[in-house]
Amino acid sequence: MTNMPPTGSNLRGAVDLSSLVNRPAAAAPQPAGAGASAGAPTSAATIAVPSLVLDGTDANFGEILELSNTVPVLVDLWAEWCEPCKQLTPVIEKLVLEYAGRFVLAKVDVDSNPQLSQAFQAQSIPTVAAVINGQPVQLFNGALPEAQIREVLERVLELATQQGVTGTAQANTGAPVAAEAVEVPLPPHHQEAYDAIESGDFETARAEYRMALAQNPNDTMAVAGLAQASLLFRLQGKTLDQIRGGAAAAPQDLEAQLLVADLDLSGGHVEDAFDRLLTLFPAQEPAGRNAIRERLLELFEVIGTEDPRVAPTRKRLTALLY
C-alpha cells in the first residue's frame, strides 16, 4: 500500500518506475545555469536534447526520466512485427515535431527492452504513455486517428501545466524553438482550476471545472479534471493512518471504504481500489450500489478511461448491475 499522502502529482497512471529511476545512469544534460536539486521541475526552462525523437532503452531510460522534469515525454512502445505500430508511430513523430519542443518522444522496442515493457504494463502494442515530472501517465493502446491523438496530447499538456512542467526541448540542430509554441493558453476555467489546485484550494478547482462543463458538457478534459480535483478534495487534510484506521474500525461504513479506495488509487494501487469497491458492491442497498458505481466511474476518469484496467472493471461492474 502507499506510504505517502496523495498529491496532484501522482494521480494518473500506476506504473512503478522506481527501479528505473534508481538505476545508475549518466547524468542527463541540463540547461545552462540550472541549479535545482535533482528531480525538481525546471518549469519553463529550455533543455537541449540530441533529437525530439529518441530511442528509449532499458539502459538509458533514467536519463529520459530526467527530461520529464522539464518537458512531457511521450513513450511509444512498439515492435518491428507490429503492423498497427507502423501506422501509429509516424503520426506521433509528426505531431511531436509540430509541437516544436513541447514534447520529447521516446520510442521503445518492446522486444529489445523487456524491463520497460513490463514497467509500462504493455499488455498489447502499440501502447502509448507519457511521463511528466517522473510520473507515468497511461494514454492509449492501439492506432488512433491523428485528430484523436492530437486531443490526447492537448490533455497531456494541460496535465503537465498543472504539475509545473512547462519547459521546452530544443534539438541540437541549431533550429530555434518557435516562440509561439512555448505557451499554449488554457481555457479560462481550466486555468482558474489549475491555479486553485496549485494553491491547494480543491473546492474552487471543482467549481471551476463544473462551470467549464456547464458551458460545454462535452469538455472531456474538464470531466477528468473534476474527477481529479474531487479525489484530492476528499483526501485533503486526512492522514494515511486516519483513513485506513477508520475503515478498519468500521468495515460496514461505506464512506470509510470509499475513502480507502481513493487512497489506494492515488498511490498507484489501482487494482486494489477497484477490487475493494467491486467486492463491497453486492452487499449494499440500492443507494450504496449507486454510490459505488458513481465512484468507480469517477476513478476511471482519474486514471484515464483508456487505461487497460478500466475495461475489465467496467465488465465486472456491468455483471454485478445486471
Rank of each mutant, 00 (worst) to 15 (best):
E66Q: 15
E183Y: 14
E271N: 11
M4F: 12
V131G: 15
A227D: 05
Q215H: 08
Q170M: 02
H189N: 15
Q163Y: 00
L232Q: 03
A319G: 08
Q252I: 00
L20K: 12
A25F: 06
G56L: 02
V131A: 12
V165T: 03
D16S: 13
A26P: 05
S124L: 09
G164W: 00
V184L: 14
E83P: 05
A207N: 11
A229H: 06
N113W: 02
L213F: 01
Q284D: 07
R316F: 10
L153W: 03
D109P: 11
A256P: 07
I149Y: 12
A287V: 14
P41S: 06
P308V: 02
I92W: 13
L67I: 00
A28W: 00
V131Y: 08
S266Q: 08
V152L: 06
L213M: 08
Q138G: 11
T57V: 10
V110K: 00
Q115K: 15
G101K: 00
G62R: 09
A48R: 01
F140C: 12
G134E: 01
Q257K: 10
N216G: 06
E298K: 03
P31D: 12
I243G: 15
D264T: 03
A28H: 01
A25S: 14
D307P: 06
R206V: 01
G225H: 02
R293W: 04
I243K: 13
V110W: 10
L299A: 07
P282T: 02
A181C: 09
F61C: 11
G288K: 05
V260E: 08
A160Q: 03
V49D: 06
Q135N: 13
L231N: 10
L263V: 03
V156H: 07
D55M: 12
L95N: 09
A122P: 07
V110T: 02
A14R: 15
P188N: 11
P251A: 08
S19W: 05
V71S: 10
E66N: 09
D16H: 15
Q121L: 13
N3T: 14
E151S: 13
L77C: 09
P29F: 01
P84N: 11
P176F: 03
L213S: 10
L320K: 11
A193E: 00
T2M: 10
A26T: 07
H269P: 00
F281Q: 13
V128S: 04
N69G: 11
V104H: 13
L265I: 04
V71C: 14
V110L: 09
I125N: 01
P50N: 12
L259W: 08
P5V: 14
L232M: 09
T166P: 15
L265A: 08
D264H: 14
N22I: 02
P145V: 01
P145F: 00
G200W: 10
S18C: 07
I132E: 01
R150Q: 08
A129W: 08
N133T: 00
N218L: 12
T2H: 08
I303Q: 09
V165E: 12
Q257G: 12
P176C: 04
L54V: 03
E192F: 03
D58H: 09
A273E: 03
T7E: 10
S37P: 07
R23K: 15
G35T: 12
R316E: 11
G304E: 06
D109A: 12
P6T: 04
Q30V: 02
P5K: 02
T239P: 06
V165M: 14
S19C: 05
